[in-house]
Structure formats: structure tokens, C-alpha cells
Nucleic acid binder design. Structure first.
Lengths: 252, 252
DNA sequence: ACCGATTTCTGATTTTGATCAACGATCTTT
DNA sequence: AAAGATCGTTGATCAAAATCAGAAATCGGT
């Protein structure tokens, strides 16, 4: 492999300064030179293919990761082999924060489609946060967001019907995709019915039936992975008597 | 009110250095002088009576709180007036971290019994974390713990039966009480069946029936709020095919 | 283009836990 | 101490979603 090939690859990689995600990602609110200092510790590895792992449960915690493109799911494994999906992560979202406490990852993370990932070694990040107050604050905010997102999801899981759960899931996706510049009403699901069901605490058959049902109601147009939201209002209405602050469901 | 009365009150209040919770609370891992600096920003207000609020949903986020004695519940209010319990918080546990992101509390917190609380103004805490790397790390750990606790609870809520949920709840309480120097097998619940049900996503009748059922199985001895665990092994066995790392359920 | 594997959809049946209802026990207030 | 309110228990019924089962559609690899 010729060295100039490597150089070319490096050039292709987008620096934080010119990354479209900088308004939702870690650099948010940083001065230009501070972004450069952050940029210097970010590792941009080759994209993951579908099914590849970022990390697995129990591995030593070394880095946090930010999705740049694609989708990543986090999950835990049951003793019987079945898996429990913890979350789906879109571009700009940080993964691995739950590993800080015990020094090892408590879940596994794998790509649902080809995904570019930024890796940030946590020891270096901590050195930076100690000298850049804005970055420290941004880290606190990020961790806090994770907590409040989880809180919303817990409320959803412990209170709602199957219909409300799927509605919340679709709206969350819609909101997050929209805030990343994608269509809010038309997207491809990168996860299976099984995975959605696991995430929402439902059987995959229930998820499938609900998609059909929403379609019959004129709320959605569904073709396997492809979803078009025809009536956002109805979807919101399904959640009207819900505890959860919608914007919080998995935003931004 | 005579000034010496105030002085006496101040003397009664326990400094972080001599607080029994220092091995699970924020000062964990700090040098002695750093603990003093932290101590200096901690506000020790008068104890809350049962039903009093620490903060309410939507209030401006100003401080995080640590339970010193007693129990606090966090909850959100549904549009229909019913409430959704988010968590129960024992001595040494930090509350309010979910307010950092948006600058306002996203849930309400009220005392379930007379409770002493330490209040830590967050702006001052951030100044300290910026200059005390160990404290910054401890804050990251604390926030991370909150996230991994929530992850475990989400897995519990989306996968398990009513029986498994209550077993997990009781074991979590047992473990946390034990690590605070209380009995692991004998305690008084400070929350109602209704509140347990809300937290676990179950109807209060289901909770009540399960207590009866566990008693018939010889697992518990229950008398209203008073619970004695007779067979810890059986309780653990109920969770054996559970995703959740038990120590993680709400530890330490 | 074909074959096997996986994923999705749909129907029938069952199960779990919610809901409705009533009653006894305990705590609070006067 | 009595009265009212709250809380916990228990029983009967009901409903939502899980499970079981099988067919149809799609995908992946050769």
C-alpha cells in the first residue's frame, strides 16, 4: 500500500471544524482553537460495516464514540442468548458514556449499516475538559442529556400501551432525523421489527401489526423498512396524555 | 432568635470529612484539602418533612442534591394528574443531574419521610471540578453511574414479568441499604404499593398480590411497609435469566 | 436466476396483568 | 374516641399483548 494512499485517506477525513455535526456534537460552544485541540485527539478509523462491533460488553473502557454517519445499536445479551436493545444511535450521538463508572463497557455496540465513527480516548478527553471549561460543561450537558433521555424512555416503557410506544419511537426518529437535516416524514428504518420490539418491550409480531394498523388509519405508509409519515398530527395526538416531554424522547 | 442558636445549628451539621457517606458520595477519592473546598460550597438546609419538595418540574436548575438521611422520590406528572415515579433515592445518592442539560429540572423530587439533604450549587461545583481533576472524574463517574442504572432499569421494564420486576426492586433496595450499613434482609419500605407499582410499570394490585405470593413461597415476611427477606437465594434465582447486572440495578 | 435463510405479515389461541369492585386495616384529624 | 381518609388486600372479570403457527416476501450468496 503506497504511503500517498494513506495521506489521501487522511485528507478525506473531516475535521471537527468542518463537520456538519459540530452544532450537536461535542465541540458545541467551543472556541475555534479549543475545537482544534479536541480535533487533535479524535481518532477517525475506517468505517464499520453492518454487523461490526464498536465495543462489546465487559471490554475495558477506553474511549467514547460519536456516530458520524450511519446507525449504531447498543444492546445487552441475556444468559439465554437473546439480546435486549438499549438504544439506536444516529449521527452526532455519543456512545459508551455508561462505561466510565466501572471502567468497562456495560453494553455492546454494533453498526446497523455502514457507519463512520469518531473515537475519542477518554483519558485524553479528561485532560482537555480539565483545561477547557466550556468543554467540561458540554460534557456535563451531554451526560445529563443521556440521563434525561433514559428517564423519558423509562416513563414510556412503564406506562404506555404498545401503540403509544411505537408512536413515540417513530416521532423520536422523525425529530432526530429532521434536526440532522434529513426528512422528518420519510426515512428508511435501519433496524428490524425484532429490534424495534426489543427496544420498546414488545413482541416483533405486535410491532408488525401496529405498522399495519397505523397504515390503515392513514397515519403511515409503510413498505418494509421504508416509512412515510402521512399524518404527524395524529401521531402526536397518540402521545397527548403521555408524561414524556416529546422533544426529550431522544432529542436532539 | 438568638445568634448563638444559629451557631449551635451550624455545629450540629456534619462536615463532608466526618460524614459516614463520604465513601459513596461526591468526595470519594479526594484529598483532604479538596474535600474541605467542596465542603465549603455545600449548603445544609433544614431537613425536609414528608411530602416537601426539593424541586419541581420546570424550575430553574440551580443545584444538585445529595440525600444524607431519609428517602426521596423523583417523579413526573401526567397531563391527567397521575404521577409517574422515576426513582427512589437513598442516602448518598445524587439528585437533579438530569437538569443540567436544559437548565431546568425535568422531574420533581419530594421527601417520602423526614430527610436531610445537602445542596450543592452547580455553578460553584463546576468551578471546583475545573481545578480538581479527581472531583471532575468523580462527577463523570457519578453521571455515568446514573446512565448505567437507567440502562438496567430500562432492560428490566422492557423485558421482564411482574414477578421479576418486584424481585429486582427488592434486591436493589437490599443491596443499596446494605452498602449503607443497614440490614440487607429487614427494612421498612418508605413508599406505598402505588408508588412501587408506578416505578415498576405495574398496577398497585399486582404489587400487593406479588407480596402475598412471595410470602406464600417463603421468600418474604411482609407486614404492610415492613419487609423481611427470608430467602435471598430464591429472590436472586428469579432474576437468573435477566439481562441486568444485578449489582448495577441501583448500586451502590 | 435460483435456492436457502431471514424477515415480515397475518391468524388463532393463550396468558399475564389491568381494571373493576368491595372490604378490612391503619392513620389522621378533630 | 369517633369519623373520615388513605392504604392494602383479595376476588372476579376483561383486555392487551405474548405466544404459537404458518404463509408470503425479500435478501444474500453462488
Amino acid at each position: 500500500m503506497a504511503p500517498n494512499k494513506v495521506i489521501t485517506l487522511n485528507k478525506i477525513q473531516i475535521a471537527c471544524q468542518s463537520c456538519g455535526l459540530s452544532n450537536i456534537c461535542l465541540p458545541l460552544g467551543l472556541e475555534s482553537d479549543d475545537i482544534d485541540r479536541l480535533d487533535a485527539i479524535v481518532q477517525r478509523n475506517r468505517p464499520l460495516r453492518r454487523g461490526n462491533h464498536l465495543f462489546q460488553t465487559g471490554e475495558k473502557f477506553k474511549s467514547v464514540f460519536v456516530v458520524k454517519t450511519g446507525t449504531v445499536k447498543t444492546y445487552t445479551q441475556c444468559p439465554d442468548g437473546s439480546e435486549q436493545v438499549i438504544g439506536f444511535h444516529l449521527p452526532g450521538e455519543v456512545i459508551g458514556l455508561d462505561g466510565i463508572e466501572l471502567g468497562k463497557y456495560i453494553c455492546s455496540a454494533k453498526a446497523l449499516e455502514t457507519s463512520a465513527i469518531c473515537e475519542i480516548p477518554f483519558d485524553k478527553l479528561e485532560e482537555l475538559t480539565a483545561t477547557i471549561p466550556n468543554l467540561q460543561h458540554q460534557m456535563f450537558r451531554l451526560l445529563s442529556r443521556e440521563i434525561s433521555n433514559d428517564t423519558s424512555l423509562m416513563a414510556l416503557l412503564s406506562k404506555s400501551t404498545a401503540e403509544e410506544r411505537l408512536a413515540a419511537f417513530l416521532l423520536s426518529l422523525s425529530i432526530r432525523l429532521h434536526s440532522r437535516g434529513f426528512s422528518a416524514t420519510e426515512f428508511n428504518l435501519s433496524m428490524s421489527r425484532q429490534e424495534i420490539g426489543s427496544y420498546l418491550g414488545l413482541a416483533l409480531e405486535t410491532v408488525s401489526r401496529l405498522f399495519t394498523h397505523f397504515q390503515e388509519e392513514g397515519i403511515l405508509k409503510v413498505n418494509r423498512k421504508y416509512v412515510e409519515i402521512l399524518d404527524l398530527e395524529k401521531l402526536y395526538a397518540l402521545l397527548s396524555h403521555q408524561t414524556v416531554c416529546l422533544e426529550k424522547l431522544r432529542a436532539p
